[in-house]
Structure formats: C-alpha cells, structure tokens
Lab assay of single mutants.
Amino acid sequence: KEMRNAYWEIALLPNLNNQQKRAFIRSLYDDPSQSANLLAEAKKLNDAQA
C-alpha cells in the first residue's frame, strides 16, 4: 500500500518531467522498501524545479 501511494504521489508531481517520474517509479519497483525515501527525494526535486 505504501508503494502504491508513493507511486501516485510521484506520478502526480507537477514539476517533474516524464523521464524523471519514470526513473523514480522504476526505483520504487526495484526496492519497494525505499518508498518513503524515494517519495521524499521526488518531492525535493519537484520543489527545486518549481
């Protein structure tokens, strides 16, 4: 469930391009235990690109 939530949050971040989203989501599938960390990194990048 945590992975699914992280997937959708990443997919809906407005300032990431599709390539960036795909990279984060690929990492999510590679290591679901890192969901919270990956989401935090994606949000950080999203904010930096705002």
Rank of each mutant, 00 (worst) to 15 (best):
K1F: 03
K1P: 11
E2Q: 11
E2G: 10
E2W: 01
E2A: 07
E2D: 13
E2T: 11
E2I: 14
M3Q: 14
R4T: 15
N5L: 14
N5M: 13
A6Q: 06
A6F: 14
Y7T: 06
Y7Q: 12
Y7I: 11
W8L: 15
W8P: 01
E9Q: 13
E9V: 12
E9C: 04
E9Y: 13
I10N: 00
I10V: 04
A11M: 15
A11G: 05
A11H: 14
A11S: 14
A11W: 14
A11R: 15
A11F: 13
L12Q: 08
L12H: 15
L12Y: 09
L12C: 12
L12M: 06
L13R: 01
L13W: 02
L13E: 00
P14I: 05
P14F: 02
P14C: 05
N15F: 13
L16K: 00
L16I: 05
N17V: 03
N17R: 05
N17A: 05
N17G: 04
N17I: 03
N18D: 08
Q19M: 05
Q20F: 02
Q20E: 04
Q20M: 03
Q20V: 04
Q20T: 04
Q20D: 03
Q20N: 02
R22Y: 12
R22E: 15
A23S: 13
F24N: 02
F24L: 12
F24A: 07
F24G: 02
F24E: 01
I25H: 10
R26T: 11
R26Q: 15
S27V: 07
S27I: 11
S27N: 08
L28G: 01
Y29M: 15
Y29N: 14
Y29W: 14
D30V: 10
D30A: 13
D30R: 09
D31P: 01
D31L: 04
D31C: 07
P32Y: 08
P32T: 03
Q34R: 08
Q34V: 06
Q34A: 08
S35H: 10
S35C: 07
A36D: 13
A36G: 09
A36R: 09
N37I: 13
N37K: 12
N37Q: 09
N37P: 08
N37G: 10
L38G: 01
L39I: 08
E41L: 07
E41Q: 13
A42L: 01
A42K: 00
A42T: 01
A42Y: 02
K43G: 04
K43Q: 06
K43C: 03
K43I: 10
K43F: 04
K44N: 06
K44P: 00
K44G: 06
K44E: 07
L45C: 03
L45Y: 03
N46P: 01
N46V: 01
N46L: 00
N46G: 02
D47H: 13
D47A: 09
D47C: 06
A48N: 11
A48I: 11
A48W: 11
Q49C: 06
Q49I: 07
Q49K: 05
Q49W: 07
A50H: 12
A50L: 09
